[in-house]
């Protein structure tokens, strides 16, 4: 009988044939750094060592890049107008390149203007007067920062704030540490921005939901992605109301006033962390049309995609994510692929 059953079983196996995969166990760590809570999750490789090394690195970067911490390289630079640091000089060179490519839409020397509006640390929100704004704007201009080897020199009165690029750079560093520890599958949640390393342990891409800024419980959609950074900038993150007018923290370096690009939230998808971080600010300042032109200019060197929510309720996304971004039907927005 058994001899008859076995062929039958084989026939059944042929007819069904399915496979199941198990997810690997993960290890994660929460780190407080750069004024935010970061969550690192590692799925393979030398998990514990990788997480420990990453935490050490984040603490080190915090001490290097935090402009409010006395003794940090950025603090010294702002206080003395000059500093020697190879790492900071490399990061500022990248920042200068992004500032150049984006026609100044991203500019870390905007710090004095931010402070005027009260978006610096510990300041009081207020609408600055014309004259003081003009004076502060005079100090802005990344092209006037001198970088020669490890030596960085600021023009008089200029101040640097790396808030728009530091988190992305930190993610980049953590990613490198993970890779050195044999990690091929990991996520780095940088407090609202993410870095994805490889695929999920089951081989499928990570699914990243993009939060609807108008409703914390809702999402603009879900993006399937791997090996990239997804960084979101939004005017809703910091703002104040004055005489019924809303003033937000994304300042256009061209005017010194909150950007009027019509974009509420921008999520940039890019392979490089520092670029992704800075580009999310640049796109927010530039608006859809100029951002598309910037994307075209960078197509060869730093390709990036973006998903943007406009103030008139449209969710626009570039063609590179058209196949991986699933709009959420309950968001109430109109979805518009950009060609």
């Amino acid at each position: 009988m058994i001899r008859r059953i076995i062929p039958l079983l084989m026939a059944c196996v042929l007819l069904t044939g399915c496979a199941q995969t198990d997810t690997d166990s993960s290890a994660s760590k929460t780190v407080f750094a750069m004024d935010t809570i970061m969550t690192l999750t590692v799925y393979d490789g030398a998990r514990a060592d990788a997480l420990r090394a990453a935490e050490t690195e984040l603490t080190r970067l915090d001490a290097l890049l935090d402009r409010a911490a006395a003794g940090s390289a950025v603090y010294s630079l702002n206080a003395n107008g000059t500093v020697r640091s190879e790492e900071l000089s490399a990061l500022l060179s990248t920042a200068a390149e992004i500032a150049r490519e984006s026609d100044g839409a991203f500019d870390p020397t905007i710090a004095p203007v931010l402070a005027l509006w009260g978006f610096g640390s510990g300041n009081v929100y207020r609408v600055p007067g014309q004259e003081e704004l003009a004076a502060a704007l005079d100090t802005v201009g990344m092209e006037r920062v001198t970088i020669s080897g490890a030596e960085i020199t600021l023009p008089e009165h200029a101040q640097i704030d790396l808030g728009g690029i530091a988190k992305g750079y930190a993610g980049e560093r953590v990613r490198a540490i993970f890779a050195a520890h044999g990690v091929t599958s990991a996520t780095i949640d940088l407090g609202g921005d993410v870095c994805l390393l490889g695929n999920k342990p089951d081989g499928s891409p990570w699914r990243v939901a993009i939060r609807d800024p108008a409703d914390r419980e809702r999402y603009l959609g879900v993006l399937a992605a791997r090996d990239c950074f997804i960084v979101t900038s939004g005017v809703y993150e910091r703002f104040f109301m004055d005489n019924g007018v809303c003033y937000h923290h994304i300042i256009d370096p061209a005017t010194g006033c909150p950007a009027a690009s019509g974009l509420v939230s921008v999520s940039v998808v890019c392979a490089d962390g520092a670029w992704a971080d800075a580009l999310s600010t640049a796109v927010s300042v530039l608006g859809i049309q100029d951002a598309l032109a910037l994307r075209e200019r960078l197509r060869q060197s730093v390709p990036f995609e973006f998903i943007a929510l406009t103030s008139d309720g449209r969710v626009c996304y570039t063609d590179g994510v058209a196949g991986t971004f699933t709009p959420d039907g309950e968001s109430g927005y109109v979805y518009e692929p950009l060609c």
Binding site: R4, I5, P7, L8, M10, A11, L14, L15
Partner: peptide, 24 residues
């Protein structure tokens, strides 16, 4: 393949064998 296997089982009639074959 499925019909050869089912036929080897010897318990199925030609109907069963050809239904299995059609499904396969």
């Amino acid at each position: 393949l499925v019909m050869i296997l089912l036929r080897r089982c010897r318990i199925f009639s030609i109907f069963g064998v050809s239904i299995g074959g059609a499904a396969a």
